[in-house]
Structures are given as structure tokens and as C-alpha cells.
Amino acid sequence: MTTTYSLGAAINAGLRAAMAGDDKVVVMGEDVGTLGGVFRVTDGLVGEFGADRVVDTPLAESGIVGTAIGLALRGYRPVCEIQFDGFVYPAFDQIVSQLAKMRARSRGRLSLPVVIRIPVGGGIGAVEHHSESNEAYFAHTAGLRVVSCSNPDDAFHMIQQAIASDDPVIFYEPKRRYWDKGEVSTEPTRSLHEAAVLREGSDCTLVAHGPTVATALAAADAAREDGFSIGVVDLRSLSPLDVPTLRKVAAESHRMVVVHEASTFLGIGAEIAATVTESCFYDLEAPVLRVGAYNLPYPPAHMENDFLPDIDRVLEAVETSLNF
């Protein structure tokens, strides 16, 4: 059985299911209660679960994550909302030094089942600090799990799987896809850290996550019209990476292009290129290529179409790979 949801509504439904299933689950963040969040992802939750479990916090990101850690130590499962990607940095210490390391520091005694939801990426014409792709900072940090959903079905299931995880999870939501609709099934088809092969291809595989999955699919369609068989993988998980799946598609298509909105330097694409090259060097016909944003601070909105990788830039990389 399936229902149709927008991506934002699917997360809302996932949160509701998790809260109904476990009364230790609490939602906290700026404007998540009465307003339902600036993207309405927590809409209606305060009415259903009360202000103790859906908490409008003071305006302080370090406080949100730091107190979530305290709640988790006390047996709760907090789900924090960071209002926009660019506002997570005040909480950097709490995430990177506290949340990520508590388990190792306590010699495995203390687990922190905290989820940090972050609307991520650009393409919505926003002002500065509202369009960033900062997954690499967190994926670089041992102790954190980092996932990125691209469609309503995944959004619904992955948020619940993230909440169920006993480790801290950074949960990325592609904000320009919040309003995209899709079918949502009652049961998950994959575990949280599995990649999804959306399309098989024998000439090249595009690897994307979050907001660029749709871009990759569109590029694959365009290439098919020119007679090329291009596969598409939705990573879903950025840490850990589903290396077996990446290895398999690399071996089958011999060429790989990673697409993400983040800048390329030391990004997820670089990690994938290194991993795939290390493990299937002899299967490859071309180096793994990366398509990402330029290595600049996210520019003003009227330049963002030039800044973000689009179908043309993906196809340009596919062509380079095919001609290598």
C-alpha cells in the first residue's frame, strides 16, 4: 500500500510515526512548535504530542545540540532541527567534539541516539547562509552517521531509521525538493546505509545524493537519447558509504561521475573517487570524475544557476569520461 506525499510531508509523517511509536522521541529546534518549522516539516506535531515533546527552543544552535546530548544521556531520543544549513556552525563543537566522540570517550558506555535534521542546499533563491552543502564537514568526523534523502519514500523511512539508530545521525533534507511529491510505501525497502541503484548503465554511472539525484536522472535521460547507457546511484548514506554497491556499479559501467552540490575540494566526490580507484582500478576506463559547485562561498542568488552543477555540467563530465 502506498500514499502520496511531498518530501517535507513525508518527513513530517515519519516524525509522527516515530513519536507515536516511542515516547522517548522528542523534537526540538527554533520555531518547530506553533509555527511547525519554517518549512512546516514539524507542522501539527506540537498539537499532537504537546510542548514537552515538541520544543520551541531558545535561539541557540549550540544549546540545541548540547541539551539534546544531555537529554540523550538521560534516555531520550532527541531529533533536533537546524533551521538552515548555514546555521549549524554555532553547534560545531557540540556536534564534532561532543556528540561524535562521547561513545569512544566513554569506552563504549555512552551512546547518543541524537538526530540532527538539516535542510540543505541551494536553488531556492535564498539570501546568504541559506543554501549551503556542508555534509563533508560531518562525514569527515568519526562517530557521526550522515545520510541524505532525495525522495519522499526515503524521507519517510530514513528519518525513522535514523531515530531508531543508537548512534548520532546527521539527516540532510534537500530543501529545494521539499515540495516534490512521490509515493510512500508502508515498509522500507532498504536499510539506512544502503545506496539505491536507480538505473543500471553500461557506459557510465552517475552517483548523486539529495538534491542532485533528480539532476543525475535528468542527465541520464538526456544521454540515453544520444544512445548512451548511463546508470544512476542514489547514495542515500554519506557516512558510511555503501562501498560494495559503488564497487559493483563501477565494475559494470567502467566509468563513474559523482555529482553533488557541495564544492568539489575534499568533498564526498573526492572520497568516492579515491575509494573506487583504490578498489577497482583495473575495472575503470577513466578516472572517476567529480561535478560539484565551484570552490567558492555560496554566491548571491542571482548567480546560483551558474554556480550549481546542472544537467549540462553533468553531461560535460560524462562526455569527458567517455572520451578519456
Partner: peptide, 26 residues
């Protein structure tokens, strides 16, 4: 507004090879 090309010049005070390379690409 400026063009994105300008941002490559505005990001660092001193020359930076990545800016030069990516500006040319852009």
C-alpha cells in the same frame, strides 16, 4: 549584480591557484 566571475576575484586577497583554474573553467 556582478557576474560569478567576479566572486573568484573577491574570495581571497592574494592569488590562489584554485580560483585561477576554476575561473577559467567557468
Amino acid at each position: 549584480g556582478d557576474d560569478l566571475a567576479a566572486v573568484f576575484d573577491q574570495t581571497y586577497a592574494e592569488a590562489h591557484p584554485v580560483m585561477d583554474r576554476e575561473k577559467a573553467e567557468f
